[in-house]
């Protein structure tokens, strides 16, 4: 029988060990990706179009596609998720309807993204005849993103104390005014953090896009901003391979001589972008909270 003090020491030691192991694995992964990828990075690599057979291709188009898809997907999914979260947390009573919605959200959020991708292929690409396009990809990403974003916004609303809602109502504000004028401003920093973190996940998503946004990246003319032209970067109907899909494709069927280097470089770019999202989330969240709470 150990005495409580030794017992405590053993417990703390074990926990430190487990936590250390997790950190070690993560650092090793991150370190490997960065060490093998960073040397490949250059302005040329980040901006040049990819080459199929020759050395020296870049990921410019893929990087642009990733951001464009991300923005489109967020533009579609954020309003829906915000509305759903406000309804679920601020208005809906606890009954079988809301339980069903919550269960559906939970199931959707654990759906493998490749299933979302195949659904997107059958529905958006084939049935709605959107073809392999940014729009199909954005819709698929919306399905992928919606459950998690809704959950995260609902959690943000939950962190605002009930007494705040009562305070608003007691001043004669309607429920809607209370939500929009008292609750949302207070929750914005936390909502923003959730949005940016989910943006990181969307940015790195590949499986849902392979069959929706497609695996080809036609050359773009960055001087043509008419969204109806096929080579315009803004055209939502063109196929658009993203960075994450690019990595997958190069590794499975890349035939350029420097495939390995490009894959490493792309991975590093992806990881850096997601790291950037995370830091931005924290920084902006804190800044915004200060701004909003003290005028």
């Amino acid at each position: 029988m150990m005495n409580p003090k030794t017992q405590n020491k053993v417990a703390i030691g074990t926990l430190y060990g487990v936590a250390g192991l997790v950190v070690l694995i993560l650092l090793a992964l991150l370190g490997y990706i960065l060490v093998s990828g960073l040397p490949q990075l250059s302005w040329h690599f980040l901006t040049a179009p990819a080459k199929a057979f020759l050395k020296g291709g870049g990921v410019g188009v893929q990087l642009y596609n990733s951001f464009y898809l991300l923005i489109l997907a967020m533009l579609i999914s954020f309003p829906i998720a915000l509305g759903a979260a406000i309804y679920l947390y601020e208005y809906a009573k606890d009954n079988w309807v809301t339980t069903t919605i919550r269960t559906a959200i939970e199931i959707l959020s654990s759906l493998p993204s490749v299933v979302v991708g195949l659904f997107g292929f059958l529905f958006f690409v084939v049935k709605l005849r959107l073809g392999f396009s940014i729009l199909s990809g954005a819709f698929a990403l919306t399905f992928f993103n919606l459950p998690l974003l809704t959950r995260s916004i609902e959690d943000s609303l939950r962190t605002i104390d009930t007494t705040q809602r009562e305070g608003g109502l007691a001043l004669g504000l309607s429920r809607w005014e209370t939500v929009t004028r008292v609750i949302l401003p207070a929750a914005v920093p936390s909502i923003l953090t959730g949005v940016i973190l989910s943006a990181g996940r969307v940015f790195g998503e590949a499986a849902a896009l392979i069959y929706t946004a497609g695996q080809s990246a036609p050359a773009l003319d960055f001087t043509d901003w008419n969204p109806f032209n096929i080579s315009s970067p803004l055209n939502p109907m063109r196929p658009a391979e993203t960075l994450a899909v690019h990595i997958w494709k190069i590794n499975s069927e890349g035939i350029m001589p420097d495939a390995k280097a490009i894959s490493s470089g792309s991975s590093a770019v992806l990881v850096l972008a997601i790291l950037l999202f995370n830091f931005a989330a924290r920084y902006l969240g804190k800044r915004l909270y200060k701004r909003l709470t003290s005028a």
Binding site: T163, G167, A170, S294
Partner: peptide
């Protein structure tokens, strides 16, 4: 009007 048990100032100025 009503004032509650726990002070509940809004997250505003």
């Amino acid at each position: 009007g009503m004032v509650f048990q726990r002070p509940n100032p809004f997250a505003k100025s």
